[in-house]
Design a binder for these strands. Sequence first.
DNA 1: GGGGAGGATAGACGGTATCTATGGAGACTG
DNA 2: CAGTCTCCATAGATACCGTCTATCCTCCCC
Lengths: 301, 301
Amino acid sequence: MNLRDLRYVLAVAEHGHFGHAAEACGISQPTLSVQVRKLEEILGIALFERTSKTVVPTDACERLISHVRAAVAEADAILAVARSLRNPLAGRLRLGIIPTLAPYLLPLVFAPLREALPLLEVEPWEDQTLALLERLRTHDLDGALLATEVDAPDLASRPLFAEPFLAALPPDHRLAARAEVAEGELAEDILVLADGHCLRDQTLAACGRSGALGSAMRATSLSTLLNMVAAGYGTTLIPGLAAGTAQDAGIVLRPLAARTDRTIRIAWRAHFPRRAAVEAVGNVVASRLKGFAAGASMGTI
Amino acid sequence: MNLRDLRYVLAVAEHGHFGHAAEACGISQPTLSVQVRKLEEILGIALFERTSKTVVPTDACERLISHVRAAVAEADAILAVARSLRNPLAGRLRLGIIPTLAPYLLPLVFAPLREALPLLEVEPWEDQTLALLERLRTHDLDGALLATEVDAPDLASRPLFAEPFLAALPPDHRLAARAEVAEGELAEDILVLADGHCLRDQTLAACGRSGALGSAMRATSLSTLLNMVAAGYGTTLIPGLAAGTAQDAGIVLRPLAARTDRTIRIAWRAHFPRRAAVEAVGNVVASRLKGFAAGASMGTI
DNA sequence: GGGGAGGATAGACGGTATCTATGGAGACTG
DNA sequence: CAGTCTCCATAGATACCGTCTATCCTCCCC
């Protein structure tokens, strides 16, 4: 049984005339006759009572036709919905973002995304790198904004922009008097985030610390970390996009001597069919943050 | 777009594996791959994200799949309903019956019809001959029990049994003393039904009256006519099946000298697809009334 | 790096939907 | 009452498409 034949049946029932129905279906009258006859044989019942002048649906046809209509309507719905889904730059895109980036980047890119991709519903999801990669693999996310290289055969990624690190110091810290701070100088009283945050590893690497921190406190969020620095517990590195927040908290920021930074990338499954949407989001983000590393390292975004 | 392909999509979505889905569909894996790919091209969207290890429905597929399920379910419903309608001896059969026959025949054949054709729902419809023929032509009836010849190219008919006429007399009528009555002797004070009843024309023809009856009363039903005869207003001819009712009304019945009768026929549209059902009903009726003309002319049915 | 699993591709084959041309039944008309 | 018209059915040819087997490519694992 074929959807095409079901449409033929509806046409014959509607027109009560094989010739007119055939024309409406865009086929020849013999074709219509043959196909309807064939369907009648498949179903084992007569659908129409034909005379030389009239074509009338049988009782059986009346009983069936609601199902026929429903089947054809569902088929049409499939086509209609598919058409509405055809634009890769429309629909939902679940985008993971690491916690040290999300609160500072999202306010910047929300409006540009809405403007450039009005039909794309970007659903942000905040979690640490490993969790995001896992969710990418399980199809719970479609893309992810990360600050690390992505080295996996099933995933692909593209760099979007470089985000410089800044030294974050209590106002009365001895280094606060400097115009810039060498990365290694922060090692002594460095504060870092909890395990799992890529920023933690990057901060330690930049300062030349191996990772053994003893009983040093580990903040669970960058916001907490900033408060700890502001309270004089120590120093840290912060990503450039958090500069505004840090300054608001009363923290002194200084550029780093080696201009250490991290590269923000967008990642997706290698076989993700709507790669175009991911790329488009990446383009908007990159475009919004263009020149950030050069001109905005002091917090003027 | 094809229902078959929709079933393929459901299979792939269910199994998450082209090979297993192909096996479930009874086709080869390459065929399934090609067909799904083709459907994706028709719809203009990717339905599955394939890697060497996993096959996962896309977001678009999730949005479509309810419609796919519905379409397939309706198609299955069509097949199931068609199967249940396949027996021509099952389902509704709208059967017209003329008023001078219905009240006397139906009680006789109801039980035999139920027994012989338990799945057939015979829906009786009582009206005069012309109305029944009209309703046959408009497909409002599927068959009709008539007492006249059916001479129309679009209709067919078959005789079922002969129903003898009987002279119906008031008990004190001069002819009531006879063992039998010649048809012509009734002409003088004959009472007849209203226009449109075939029994009216047959009665007049049997008595040799041309039809000009002057102010003679025209009963609107056979029941009324019998009451009029019983009250002594005149005589009439009644069909044999009404004998019991007539005698209950206190009427004297006598056989006719020439054994005049009428032939009860079943009629249907020449192209009616369930002719088998009509024939079956005809057989039951004919079988129930077999030998009626010969042995039951005195009312012993 | 060799083997295995799984999906994609290629080429051949067969079924079937479609066409045009024609047949045949029934109804209207001059 | 024959001619004609309408309309559905049939016949035969053709082209498309769904399906198969055989093979390739990719990825993963040992």
